[in-house]
Design a protein around this nucleic acid. Structure first.
Lengths: 122, 122
DNA sequence: GTTATATGTGACGATTAGGTCACATATGAA
DNA sequence: TTCATATGTGACCTAATCGTCACATATAAC
């Protein structure tokens, strides 16, 4: 029961992060911000769609805590914050790596079979 | 330029996985499947919405490679496949952990400031 | 002050996604 | 064969999401 409660809490807390990471444009933004921090305008120049759309994406990333804003005069510098991604890893990715070996074998067999099935369908 | 091409390819290939992970119901499904493999019906019993909705979710998870299906007579056993999640980690999570120390300090300062700002707004 | 630049807001439209429904198919057991 | 059970398909509705537009605000430089 404790585990269930923990799961549920994590799901809700991480929800904004997952939503933010779900969009390819936003992932590309994070990739750009990973190299160096940028102002909103500088970031918008990298995308085909309008600056307003970029701002919306940044707002979503900020809400998720993935982007932190530093005001510098009339500019707005967007920094990438890696912490939420690390938390996602600890709560979601790592547990999925720790499956028992017998299950992994069985899953691998199922993957093989489904691959064969897909190929025979062609 | 090589790096850019690699990024782009990764983004597109992982796109289905991200989409699949974006929904909280699907994440809960993966959590259930992590404990043990289940038939579609058994899985559907855990959710408030209909079995058909569960099937749609399973289809999306399957398209992303996160769920592998094993036919067993008239039953359909859904296995969790951890491989795509591991790939997500390698291509997306780990690079974000490797930021240089000076940038991390600066980002941390920005996080602090934005937190102060948020608190003063209350 | 005036003006140019950088960022923010509100309303709107098109597309997609999550969900339900009624109905169809396939397998195991009697 | 007959019937119950497990899974699959097509059309539909609703709500959220991504993008645009016109307009508003704030700061730096002159």
């Amino acid at each position: 029961m404790n585990e269930k409660a923990r799961e549920r809490a994590c799901t809700e807390r991480d929800s904004w992060v997952w939503r933010a990471l779900g969009d390819p444009s936003r992932r590309r933004m994070l990739d750009l911000l990973r190299r160096r921090s940028r102002t909103t305008g500088s970031l918008a120049a990298e995308f085909d769609f309008t600056r307003f759309a970029v701002m919306k994406h940044l707002k979503i990333l900020e809400r998720a805590g993935l982007v932190v804003v530093e005001r510098r005069g009339r500019e707005r510098v967007n920094h990438l914050n890696p912490v939420p991604i690390q938390e996602i890893y600890r709560r979601w990715i790592r547990p999925f790596e720790a499956l028992p070996a017998d299950r992994l074998l069985r899953i691998r067999a199922a993957v093989e079979k489904s691959r064969e099935r897909q190929e025979s369908e062609r």
